[in-house]
């Protein structure tokens, strides 16, 4: 009687029209002792499915890597990007500041040199004033004659 029922379910099973509950019945039937001889050929199949279900994912690593890879790794990634950005800005602005300082220095030096020149030049003009004196005296002498 029972094997009749099982046979019917098996037929449906191979046409893929059986329900989950019916397939459960099959698995239970084949996991027990005393399978009817003409049905024994199917036993290995269902036994295999039952054993395959036992396999577990035993690796424990993901739990730690989940936190480290996604959480800490995430922060480190952005931290490094920020650091690189900061460095680039630093170099850029540092260079600009240095250029400004250089220009300022050059300006001061030029100014100093110009002042020096101006000083000497004015001293030169003072001396030239004496020449006028000479000219005047010369005129006086000529006119006096």
């Amino acid at each position: 009687m029972e094997s009749d029922k099982i046979e019917k379910i098996i037929e449906k099973y191979f046409e893929a029209t059986s329900t989950v509950a019916e397939e459960e019945t099959l698995r239970n039937y084949f996991s027990k002792e005393g399978v009817a001889t003409h049905l024994e050929q199917y036993a290995t199949m269902f036994q295999y499915f039952s054993t395959a279900k036992e396999e577990k994912f035993t690796k424990q690593v993901p739990l730690e890597t989940i936190t480290s890879v996604t959480k800490k790794g995430f922060n480190f990634k952005w931290l490094s990007i920020a650091a690189a950005g900061l460095l680039m800005f630093g170099i850029y602005f540092g260079k600009m500041y240095k250029e400004q300082q250089d220009a300022e220095y050059a300006y001061q030096e030029t100014k100093k040199a110009m002042n020096l020149l101006a000083q000497n030049f004015s001293r030169g003009t003072e001396k030239v004033a004496y020449l006028n004196q000479f000219e005047e005296t010369k005129q006086k002498i000529y006119n006096g004659k």
Binding site: F57, K59, V61, P62, T65, I66, V69, T70
Partner: peptide, 11 residues
């Protein structure tokens, strides 16, 4: 593969 999938799911 499973590990990778779990990490992807987490992200």
């Amino acid at each position: 593969a499973t590990q990778e999938i779990l990490i992807k799911l987490w992200s």
